[in-house]
């Protein structure tokens, strides 16, 4: 099945399931039962299923089906759990401190999950579109190498041209750029605005440069482009690498609070 068609049917199924479960909880409420018990247990089952995906990735030796299928179920069950969660809290902000903390954790887990899905889908594709492949762990070394290269370039420019115009401009506007990774958010969003502003700034200095400095300015522009490549790789690969750090730990801490929540609910449930 084509990806788009699959996505359409999966979302349709999600919507239908959401409507049905909402209706089911409404009927449970009408039947003088507490729907939160049922939505709560359903959420626990969903979390267990979602957590199983995490275990599956860690226990890849054990054959448990294709990862893509597991991933699909993980994504859509995660979205479905949002619907169940909203029914669980009655579509309102919880009043209790513990319940508010749990709700916040859940939303963070959900956000990190959706974010991770977007990161996996789009950033990987963008990385593949880049002209160069750079290993993430070597990016700092490349940054340092490029910085040294740029500084020697500037030094040579001053010696050869006898003018410090380009050097002054570098010190004031570009030294920080080459010092560390910059414009991470822009690179994540795929925006060139920041880079183009830097390039435009350099371009505007050309009128003040003599002929020798102008030649060095062109070399400097190439370094700026190389730095952009490094920063782009750094941003995209960092996101791909580190989004999981937030999602899994948040989910685990949520499970701990859910356990406490269950004990409190059943200990203080009253006669309902």
């Amino acid at each position: 099945m084509r990806f788009r068609a699959r996505r359409f049917w999966n979302f349709t199924a999600l919507v239908i399931a959401s409507l049905l479960i909402t209706l089911a909880f409404e009927i449970v409420d009408l039947s003088l039962r507490v729907p939160q018990y049922y939505s709560g247990w359903l959420m626990i089952i969903l979390f267990a299923t979602l957590f199983a995906f995490y275990l599956k990735k860690r226990l890849s030796i054990i054959p448990m089906g294709s990862s893509s299928l597991w991933a699909q179920w993980h994504y859509y069950l995660g979205l479905f759990s949002l619907i169940v969660f909203l029914n669980h809290i009655n579509f309102s902000v919880p009043a209790g401190k513990l319940e508010l903390l749990m709700s916040t954790l859940f939303l963070l887990v959900l956000a990190s999950g959706i974010g991770g899905l977007l990161i996996n889908r789009h950033f990987a594709k963008r990385l593949s579109y880049l002209s160069e492949e750079i290993i993430y762990e070597r990016i700092p070394g490349y940054n340092l190498q490029l910085k040294n290269e740029v500084e020697s370039l500037i030094t040579n420019c001053v010696e050869k041209s006898g003018s410090t115009t380009l050097a002054d401009y570098y010190i004031r506007h570009l030294s920080e750029y080459f010092h560390r990774p910059r414009f991470i958010i822009s690179h994540l969003l795929g925006s060139n605005y920041a880079i183009e502003r830097i390039v435009a700034g350099l371009q505007n200095q050309m009128r003040y440069l003599n002929k020798e400095e102008a030649d060095y300015a062109l070399l400097l522009k190439n370094c700026i482009e190389r730095k952009r490549m490094l920063d782009t790789h750094f941003a995209l690969q960092s996101a791909l690498k580190y989004w999981g750090i937030s999602h899994a730990p948040l989910a685990l801490s949520l499970m701990i609070f859910i356990s406490l929540h269950m004990v409190l609910v059943y200990a203080f449930r009253g006669a309902a």
Partner: peptide, 9 residues
Amino acid sequence: KSRLASEFH
């Protein structure tokens, strides 16, 4: 809905 709720109850 009322009928279903009654049955479930």
